[in-house]
Design a protein around this nucleic acid. Structure first.
Lengths: 144, 144
DNA sequence: TATTAAATAGGAATAATTCCAAATTAAAAA
DNA sequence: TTTTTAATTTGGAATTATTCCTATTTAATA
């Protein structure tokens, strides 16, 4: 998405298209790595050196409210953000902070079917998300 | 689990059976509601008025390290603790802080089968956990 | 171009958690 | 049982992520 498209997307969602928001959202779209607020702060600072960390938080909050960004739960206490909202699951590597996206239409179908057959009384499911925890095996990405 | 059994469990896991640990673990086993550190602090204070909040955190960390307790993150980013470690999933109600346990052997079998057939290259899955987000429907537990 | 409501900056405040060092204590050894 | 010792507890200080506050700035609109 280019700057112009981002501007439009912000306006469409009733958000004033400020340079700060454009750059924050642009940074979010550039990375698949579920950045923290600080990560985004660093990235956007390259473009707008005067930007404040408060603005990062404010902007992320606005984007979340408009469903353009979501948060990812980690075991540690830093919030991570995600601008990719198509249905996917998360692989948590090594109990740590590495989170990888996992896409599978087959899995989504399986889950949707299951909960269609086994609905939860008085509860409407809006999102089904899987957390896969584990570790790399072999010597692929290992480093101890 | 009574005091004696808790003592044994702690020793078996190489943890000194201090009154503090016994009471913290006992409190954890008494509640299904995924308490926060502060919640446990309040509960244990009834038994040991002099206990320190640091000890609550230390103790929970020890219990986590020995796999007697695990953590759950809420949408509002507070860490909650869980002493019930049999396979279950979590229902997040209304974007808030309420988390309900969801047990289903059928679902677990389904998921295990799926990942047996669709293993992730160089990755060993240790835990498969589902997050169900949604809201109550009807007038059951609604309050707005 | 002027108006205005919304957004930003940045520093202070808050809240959860971790850190630290001295005092205490459970478990092991004598 | 007593002594020894290494682990644990305390409680206050420090840290960290996030929120709050408000004067200033700015995008959108008329």
């Amino acid at each position: 998405m280019n700057i112009e498209e981002i501007k439009n997307k912000l306006s469409q969602h009733g958000l004033k298209a400020t340079i700060q928001r454009i750059q924050v959202y642009s940074a979010m779209l550039k990375t698949k790595s579920h950045p923290t607020a600080e990560d985004i702060y660093s990235m956007v600072k390259a473009e707008i050196p005067s930007i404040s960390l408060s603005t990062i938080y404010n902007t992320l909050d606005s984007l979340i409210e408009k469903n353009l960004v979501s948060t990812v739960k980690t075991d540690s206490d830093v919030t991570r953000y995600d601008a990719f909202l198509d249905s996917h699951h998360h692989i948590y590597v090594g109990g740590g902070d590495e989170i990888i996206d996992y896409y599978s239409q087959e899995l989504d179908d399986l889950l949707n079917d299951f909960f269609k057959k086994n609905s939860i009384p008085n509860f409407e499911i809006k999102e089904i998300k899987l957390q896969l925890k584990g570790d790399y095996v072999n010597n692929q990405k290992e480093n101890n």
